[in-house]
């Protein structure tokens, strides 16, 4: 699903150039449930931005679903994002003056689906996430967990092949965090590739594969079989 080879990315700030990703190699198969970890400055946000086609890279190749993602213009990037990727953000990023249903329906608006139809689909998704009776509430009337569930519904509605979640539990308490992780796991069980960026070990431990970044390269990949070991290690840390 995702094939990255020799990925380089630098940020130029004035006269200084910050080399963030240094020849990163990464392969993620369809249907995987992956977490990307790393201390701040390890390049995980940069990697996520590149994966999400929010940012371009300097060198290397990035294939998404067999398609080379390189030097896309904004329109193409937006269309590809809309079609392939569902985003979940730490701070939910719901639009404050739209109610839950309209927020969920927004990606379909960009696909020019009629209002009636997209609201109907949005209601279905909200129903799946147990939020049907909240459909006509504004984000300000929802709790954090509810907001994130609305955001998840919004990420799912365009039926993307990948869900990219940037610290999806970062703003939630542990109970709601686990609820959200359960939902993500369910989504993964239905066959979607889910990639989350997190710095919380217990959250990462709930995924099926952990990629640890350090200084712009992959330091360690912990796979299914070794997860128990990782969990134990987390406990001792």
């Amino acid at each position: 699903m995702i094939q990255i080879e020799n990925l380089h990315k630098s940020y130029v700030m004035g006269h200084n150039s910050l080399h963030v990703l240094k020849g990163l190699e990464l392969g993620i198969e369809a249907g995987e449930f992956v977490s990307i970890m790393g201390s701040s400055g390890s390049g995980k946000s940069t990697l996520l931005n590149i994966l999400g086609i929010l940012d371009d890279y300097d060198q290397g190749t990035y294939y998404l679903g067999g398609k080379l993602i390189q030097g896309l213009n904004e329109t193409k990037a937006a269309l590809t994002r809309n079609e392939m990727i569902g985003f979940i953000f730490q701070s939910f990023n719901l639009i404050s003056f739209k109610n839950a249903m309209e927020n969920v329906a927004l990606p379909l608006y960009y696909q020019k689906i009629s209002r009636k139809k997209r609201n109907q689909i949005a209601l279905e998704y909200l129903d799946r996430l147990g939020l049907k009776e909240w459909a006509h509430h504004l984000p300000s009337e929802l709790s954090g967990g509810q907001k994130q569930r609305v955001a998840i519904a919004r990420a799912l509605i365009s039926q993307p092949r990948i869900i990219l979640a940037d610290e999806p539990t970062g703003a939630l308490d542990s109970t709601t965090s686990f609820e959200v992780m359960d939902i993500l796991k369910e989504i993964n069980d239905q066959g979607k590739t889910v990639i989350i960026v997190t710095h919380e070990h217990d959250i990462a431990a709930m995924t099926k594969k952990i990629i640890r970044l350090k200084d712009g390269v992959i330091e360690e990949v912990i796979k299914n079989g070794d997860l128990q070991l990782f969990k134990d290690r987390v406990r001792t840390e």
Partner: peptide, 16 residues
């Protein structure tokens, strides 16, 4: 700014 950013992330083209 943020709202526009979100809209673009979830697929709003510059034209929109």
């Amino acid at each position: 700014t943020k709202e526009i950013g979100v809209q673009r992330a979830i697929g709003a083209t510059p034209r929109v």
